[in-house]
Design a protein around this nucleic acid. Structure first.
Lengths: 238, 238
DNA sequence: ATATTATTCTGACAAAAGTCATCTTTTTCG
DNA sequence: CGAAAAAGATGACTTTTGTCAGAATAATAT
């Protein structure tokens, strides 16, 4: 598959305000802008692979990407779903290690690649930016700690409910008092987010549906009762 | 319980070489040193609590501390066990959030407290130090990602084996071709590390013991067959 | 449009792990 | 030291969840 390039100035990027580059001074932003390469990816294409060495940073301009690990039995665990404005692959870049995860396009994406050197240059010249990056990384880490504890002690039902609510927070589009999760996720992907088997997700989703908590809209899920779903996520109904 | 202070110059700290402060220039190190407060804690005492605001950084000079989250049902999940040389509570400090976990002393500890201001001053003045901190945080994050995937798809038996090996790497003392895990962990704590019930840990440990993989030495565990344990953990044996 | 493939769904069953109860052994502390 | 509390151990039982097999539906490609 040939790589399709596109170009958009960072200053004109509609997702600049959502990204860590926001507030960067014009000089630094133009340094990033002048060295970046922007590529359009189709669903199913890979951005980077576990075990390879990062050579730069990816910045999402459009689409959705899943970042996941594969275990020995080939089972996927999705660590993160990136949306426009998000950085991709910064963890391994900053720790100077190999990628520990693979990134694959879920919905056709536009992604800009910023070479390591340019990114590090701005990072080192600009303490305010550096601080913002550190803050973001540490925030992410807090989310991971939360997920760890959740995975350790919550049932699959609770985790599914919690994850649907998280997806609603990030990808939810409000309408008629409910929220459509604007993400074309397969049941398999959802299982890889929750950390369970596909069949279990299917069964629980239809339970939630028959309980009136969610509904299906094509491949997407609509959250009808966030509060009731939250109750499912927090409590063990004994 | 009265707080017992102690004092030791950072330059003379035997764990300096293991800590992120290693290689710091004398000026910066003395800034840290001049503002720190060092306290001795007894087993069971708390260093900080989930939900409170960090006011500085803790640097371990002796002992062992568990960092954990409590869930709704009161079940603990241990995120990290800190040893001399480790920083404690830097995540929340750097992300400027509340603590998301509680820190409790496992083995009598000596811990130095560095006020937020002093730490941030050195961090901002010293880009090399900043880079080292970022690198460490991102490395930690990689470990968490690993743990997440493990928790999601491995059995309790595999996770227990993997965690025993990890503890062996960090706290193992070699002798007679085997490794004593130098950590007085209760079965309950071990269960909180693995993310399972205490009874399950007890049963699996005695299985491992009868299979000749480990032995008990007082409250401590000796790893007799790391390679066989690695096979149990479904890890690639190097 | 139709064949092919992938995804979703359902049922039956087995295995893993949690819970509860009880007992024994250690540890702690007055 | 000895009583009380905590930790460790074991058995019986239940619940949850994973696995396998097969059918129905949807998506994709030729």
């Amino acid at each position: 598959m040939a790589k399709v390039e596109f170009n958009i100035a960072c200053t004109l990027c509609e997702h600049l305000k959502d990204s860590l580059f926001t507030g960067l001074n014009p000089e630094d932003l133009s340094r990033i802008n002048n060295h970046k390469t922007c590529i359009q990816y189709k669903k199913g294409q890979n951005i980077f692979y576990e075990g390879t060495r990062p050579t730069g940073l990816y910045c999402m301009n459009g689409g959705k990407v899943k970042v996941y690990k594969n275990n020995v039995q080939g089972k996927e665990f999705i660590i993160y779903i990136a949306k426009p404005g998000d950085f991709l692959g910064y963890r391994a870049l900053l720790s100077e290690e190999f990628y520990q995860a693979t990134a694959t396009v879920l919905e056709d994406a536009k992604i800009c690649f910023i070479p390591k050197e340019s990114f590090f240059e701005v990072l080192q010249k600009n303490p305010v930016f550096m601080k913002r990056v550190v803050q973001a990384v540490c925030h992410e880490m807090g989310i991971m700690e939360e997920k760890l504890a959740e995975l350790a002690h919550k049932s699959v039902r609770e985790r599914l409910a919690a994850n649907l609510l998280m997806l609603k927070e990030t990808y939810g589009m409000e309408g008629e008092g409910s929220f459509l999760i604007d993400l074309a996720l397969s049941r398999e992907d959802l299982a890889s987010i929750v950390g369970t088997a596909t069949e279990t997700v299917i069964r629980l989703l239809s339970e939630f549906k028959s309980e009136g908590l969610i509904s299906f809209e094509g491949k997407k899920i609509r959250v009808l009762e966030p509060k009731k779903l939250a109750k499912q996520a927090d409590l063990i109904v004994a």
